[in-house]
Design a protein around this nucleic acid. Structure first.
Lengths: 228, 228
DNA sequence: CGTAGAGTTGACTTTTGTCAAAATCCGTGG
DNA sequence: CCACGGATTTTGACAAAAGTCAACTCTACG
């Protein structure tokens, strides 16, 4: 992770967008910008919370370890998103790790200054609370799906949700670089199962593949495997 | 649900404990107290959010529907807890239902007044945000367990967690009235599976059963099925 | 070119869910 | 007090879904 000068333009990130004009200079003085390489860990599950990150550029996976070779990806995040907020609360250790899926730029706010920011920016605090409420809602929906929806439906859901947050590149493929293993970890299943079920989805004409790239051919058909 | 006069003592609930002394009279003027019968729905998934509840007495399950005869219980709550906060956020519909597991008393705050409370009680807002952060952390841990931990471990985990929140009655049984079906919904599995695996736990001497009551004989042994 | 990592496939096992049928419990009304 | 009906509990047989293991292939990339 390399510290650099480039940073948030003070408009696009979750923090700068929502805190008061008067506070922005303080944010600007305190924040640190970093370049992150693909595959690099931004923070690690179980280590002490040092601060909060905001993604200026790039894509990150937020994941929770199970065994040495198994994890669950709880979130995929892109530019503008906040990272590390799961470290807030009574516990002083990050409950998850964050890894860059592609090279990116992030802005770091140390936890002390972040706390001060919350104190003097009720509007930001309010939005952060609402953000947490939304995340919790989302998380519990995923939980229910994990408990009751068959893997094929979870994969369909994941692909649709990825399309809606990351969109498609000009050639129509999902605009994210996600390995099959990551897709498996995101849907709470195994590599081989993802592979087999994706093949079925191809056979049925719901999706098309080109190497690691995924093209959603028939979103409606995918929807039939999901709920809501 | 019957409206009554008895209500919060202004000290024990999540709201009254944390908002400013000056605001308490307003809370007192606005809150409504209700008696809830066993099995009664406090609010229903998909209906419009009317307000937030605080449990004065009793036990509630917070659950999310899957099919007609399947659900996932996302939370078990007891006196002092907040209910309905999952209704906060952009969406105006409750994403879950809450059902009384035994007769109880709740205090209701309409959403409008709750919003005002947030505006004038930054300390409460801060604690609410922290509370959400904790819930999210918890939810994602459960999610990972649902994805990777075998059912037996999830049951063990559930029993231990119930013991730590609800404690035991004088005779040593878990102090909660939870049907096997509810335990199945709480661990994301089926009635029969819960039944069979609980039998195994009895055989192994980890727990003992007496009707619907559960006694944890060997917490350490239960722990070996779980993680952390 | 060789090697590491990712993709592909098949055979097999295990876990868990489903269905159906008995057995048992429990409250109610006769 | 007892019979009844409904709900819950208990059990078994079976099916389906998903995980595991192992081997083989393909590429990207030094």
């Amino acid at each position: 992770m390399k510290r650099n000068k480039q940073g948030c333009d003070l408009k696009s990130c979750f923090l700068c967008r929502l805190c008061s004009k008067e506070w922005l200079p303080a944010v600007d003085a305190h924040r640190q910008s970093f370049h992150v390489n693909k595959g690099e860990l931004l923070f690690t599950e179980g280590t002490e919370v040092t601060g909060i990150y905001f993604i200026y550029k790039g894509t990150f996976k937020v994941h929770k370890k199970w065994t040495e070779d198994k994890e669950l990806i709880v979130r995929l995040a892109r530019s503008g998103a906040i990272l590390g907020h799961r470290g807030l609360g009574n516990d002083v250790f990050y409950p998850v790790s964050a890894t860059a899926l592609e090279p990116g730029e992030v802005c770091f706010i140390d936890i002390g200054f972040f706390q001060s920011t919350l104190k003097v920016n009720p509007q930001f605090l309010y939005e952060l609370m609402m953000f947490f409420a939304g995340e919790l809602k989302e998380s519990e929906k995923k939980m229910r799906n994990l408990a009751h929806m068959p893997v094929k439906g979870r994969i369909a859901q994941a692909l649709l949700s990825i399309q809606s947050t990351f969109g498609t590149s000009p050639d129509g493929f999902l605009d994210i670089n996600l390995s099959r293993q990551d897709l498996a970890s995101y849907t709470g299943t195994t590599y081989e199962t993802v592979f087999r079920l994706m093949n079925e989805l191809v056979q049925e004409g719901s999706i098309a593949l080109s190497g690691r790239n995924i093209y959603i051919t028939d979103a409606d058909k995918l929807l039939t495997y999901t709920v809501q």
